[in-house]
Design a protein around this nucleic acid. Structure first.
Lengths: 221, 221, 221, 221
DNA sequence: AATGAATGAGTATTCATTCAT
DNA sequence: TATGAATGAATACTCATTCAT
């Protein structure tokens, strides 16, 4: 049967199906917004449904429970987060110190400063309530992220720019302040006066300098 | 008959008094356990009382609300330790780099590695839902902690050991990896294989070296 | 087959819709009963729901709080009657003394003698513990009631039937015995022997005569 | 054994006993204050004990329950309330209209305006919860009060000053606005703006005039 | 597939009352 | 007698989840 035949019922069916396929996505978008904004416990299912323009019942039609919805949101928004970074690192032409600075700064601009970074905060906050999710996050985000940084450091060592340090912990030394920055932004920062606020770009620049200075083979650089 | 013979009435009185004096401590211990284990919101008041071996009513006899209980837990387990740190810093005789290393290592031994450190994770996780608690924690713990580190750095600058850096961000540069370590321990670490685990003392030693190296006036040191 | 035959789906839909529409009314009836019977504080929300044949949650679906429920009961049972009274007064054709007698007698028949009058007793009894409810009642019921009487008295003055008295206190002079009657009915009357009981219509007739006699310009009337 | 012997134990015993006898009175005083101020439900047992300067336990030593305390407070403060009035009426020399005015005004000054009037409000408010108390109040206060007024009216009739009215309801006509005033003072008045406040002496004077005018045989008076 | 009315388990806090001392 | 530490019943309100339509 050719699809060009304008059969009302089939047309309606197709439209309906498209609609149907879009539903989960709309729900996930709404849920992402709310989870990031208010946290898991403080987000009400009904509000998610309302923001997606459907009724409460429909939400439970697609996601059997609030926990399942949360898991789906995290999974949906995590995948493919780190890929971009990897390719840019691979093609880098300049010095490794410059690369390291670039990676850290871009990480903030493209991720840390965006809404999406709320996901990381959420995962760490709720890790003990959703261990499998933490595990999933570790595999999908943490591991590749560590690999990315490890690659950068290895490049510096290979090219004779960096000292031959303990890679395993050096990687965390690079990442720790970045993760801290993210947590801070989503937890303490909103509650406290601006006088002692952290300026992320400045903080990151300083951090990058510190790391590079600590890694450089030639201390006079 | 010597008065040392156990007189029922005095013994009972003493026992009761002892129990009464011990109550707050027992409740705080139980609360610490449960808050760390399940978070603030998920910990039911009645369970705290039950774990301390008393009834619900007794808990509220000593702590007028769940928030007050939490604050008391923070005071009991954290605030004092910051004070200790401050006095030890004040009496330090050696070099500032050694002091910095000492402070960071002791921080882990006396706090980070203990159950109490779960409180910090908890506060960051639930800050947005309990702004008042976050604010309290910021005032009672974060501010003094920042001051502690600031004092150490200032000492180094004053004694001509450290460069004259941007104190505000340098303080966070020192603390960020410590806080990260704490979050990590209570969120991602339990979920993941040991192959990529962080060894806190090693990580901290490396971090201290990095910071000191970055701050030293005389790079040849 | 005629469409008048009961089609299951439409019947069910109708029945459900009818139930939904009826819910608030059923809840208000149950609430009126219980509030009058046990007072505001002593009436448990769940019991109201149970008497209406629904669950606790359903009650809060329609009335967001116990206070709102109470206000709705007042609006449903009292406010409207004052409005009726106002319009009847406005359309009155006869003499003002007759109007006054009519108003007082009807007040008893349509309100004082009904279950709803328990609400007034309740408000006065619990006013100090629920100031907001008292204030609401004052605005929605007392003020309009005072206005109603004031209007009647003013009419008599304007038409030259009544002397030009101090309206403010005259209004209370008219209402005081009515309110007393209501309090009495719901407090002392049930406890005491019938020998000294008050016969409301007689008492009201006598009160109306007294008031009219006191107000009339022409004492010979 | 003569009481002049200064036997320490007996002296202490006496003092103690005196103290003991005073306890219930102190508790009743404290309870009266609080019940009138806050109502029955809102008064906490512990607060009564504290105001009487004893511990919670002691309160329950003398009054087995809060309800019993309430009953005792009412009984304690009701007895002998009406006696004074009766004798003054009996000895009155002037006209009955003047007597009526005098009685009503004095009632307000000596009772309505005092804290003790809170008892009447309390009894009427809680009548349905304490039927026996309401009954007791009716016998001890209401009946004698009705008799008092009845006596005044009868005096007026006997002396040819008043018309031969239906005494039963006339008595209530006299008292109703007084009781209303009392209730109003303790319930609605505190919640509402002063613009429509009642001035008790003015209200009472007006009420007395109205009643007298209604009762007088000679309308020209 | 979609709705939304209905449900009821879950929880911090209060306070009259008890009882060991 | 007196104490006050301890108790636990009692209650409004929320929200994830269900299911008749």
């Amino acid at each position: 049967m050719p699809t060009t035949v304008s059969d009302p019922s089939s047309t309606h069916g197709a439209r309906r199906e498209r609609r149907k396929d879009a539903r989960p996505g709309e729900l996930l978008d709404a849920a992402l917004d709310l989870f990031v904004e208010k946290g898991f416990a403080a987000t009400r299912s009904e509000e998610v449904a309302a923001r997606a323009g459907v009724s409460k019942g429909t939400l439970f039609l697609y996601f059997p429970s609030k926990e399942d919805l949360f898991k789906a949101v995290v999974r949906e928004n995590i995948v493919g987060r780190v890929q971009e970074g990897l390719s840019e690192v691979a093609g880098w032409q300049g010095s490794t110190p410059d690369l390291l600075r670039f990676v850290l700064q871009e990480w903030w601009v493209r991720y840390g400063a965006t809404k999406a970074s709320g996901i990381s905060k959420l995962v760490m906050s709720e890790a003990s309530n959703f261990p499998e999710l933490a595990h999933f996050y570790h595999q999908e985000v943490v591991q590749p992220g560590l690999e990315l940084i490890r690659g950068v450091l290895q490049r510096g060592i290979d090219r004779g720019e960096f000292r031959d340090v303990d890679l395993q912990h050096a990687v965390y030394a690079v990442l720790a302040p970045m993760i801290f920055l993210l947590m801070w932004k989503h937890s303490m920062a909103p509650c406290c006066d601006a006088s002692q606020a952290i300026d992320p770009p400045v903080f990151i620049a300083q951090h990058a300098d510190l790391i590079v200075r600590g890694l450089l083979k030639d201390a006079s650089a």
